[in-house]
């Protein structure tokens, strides 16, 4: 698709802020246009990396669950971790990746809660690995924000 989605969104961002907003008389409408332009700017970049981010997250959570399943003693949780670790992303559509991501994230919350309450020898290491994943994923999801200073 040409021009590239990112290029079009950046272009719209510039047009809205440079050409449209200055000609609006209502402060309220100008505010809306500014925010919509900013979100087009973000969308332009997110569009390119959205699938990659979700695919990577889903893969890392499955790997984490596979590792955790070998450690936790709770049989029911162990079984659910094993099952989740074996799931696949059947499509690269964002809606599919997001639905899978939400299911995996719900299990991650359950696992993290379980690990926090454990004094087993493996607990500290697993807790640290979960946090490493969460910090990395929040960094990976960082939205672009133009400087207005």
């Amino acid at each position: 698709m040409k021009p590239d989605v990112g290029v079009v969104m950046q272009g719209f961002f510039g047009t809205l802020l440079g050409d449209v907003a200055p000609h609006l008389s209502a402060e309220y409408s100008m505010g809306h246009v500014g925010i919509m332009g900013l979100m087009l700017h973000m969308t332009g970049e997110l569009h390119d990396r959205a699938a990659d981010i979700r695919l990577a997250e889903n893969s890392e959570m499955r790997s984490l669950f596979s590792h955790a399943a070998a450690l936790v003693e709770d049989e029911a949780l162990k079984q659910r971790l094993t099952s989740a670790a074996e799931t696949l992303d059947a499509s690269l559509r964002i809606s599919v990746l997001e639905a899978n991501n939400a299911e995996l994230a719900a299990l991650l919350i359950e696992l993290q809660t379980h690990v926090e309450g454990s004094q087993a020898s493996w607990a500290a290491g697993l807790e640290a690995r979960i946090w490493d994943y969460l910090v990395a994923t929040m960094e990976r999801r960082e939205l672009p924000f133009p400087s207005f200073g």
Partner: peptide, 11 residues
Amino acid sequence: VPQPVARAAIR
């Protein structure tokens, strides 16, 4: 959607 960081903060 599930919020792992928010839930960890609450705990």
